[in-house]
Amino acid sequence: MKVRVLVRPKSGILDPQGEAVRRALPALGFGGVKTVHIGRLVEMEVESPEEVEGMCRRLLANPTVEEYEWEVVG
């Protein structure tokens, strides 16, 4: 079973990567970009999707500073 996990900085947590990209975009002529947040996409093939929640909480995300969501994609 294919699972897709999205991990990103919690709102309000400094995201210097996103901020650097936000500032770089206008230099390429892309105006009007108000915010950029950068996260991490994890794609896995798993046998037991009921274990994914635990994987997110214990390893894939750091709940102190990141939030996550996941879905079965096939």
Binding site: L14, P16, Q17, V65
Partner: peptide, 8 residues
């Protein structure tokens, strides 16, 4: 937690 340095 230790985050990325603010100056990247």
């Amino acid at each position: 937690a230790l985050l990325r340095n603010s100056n990247m």
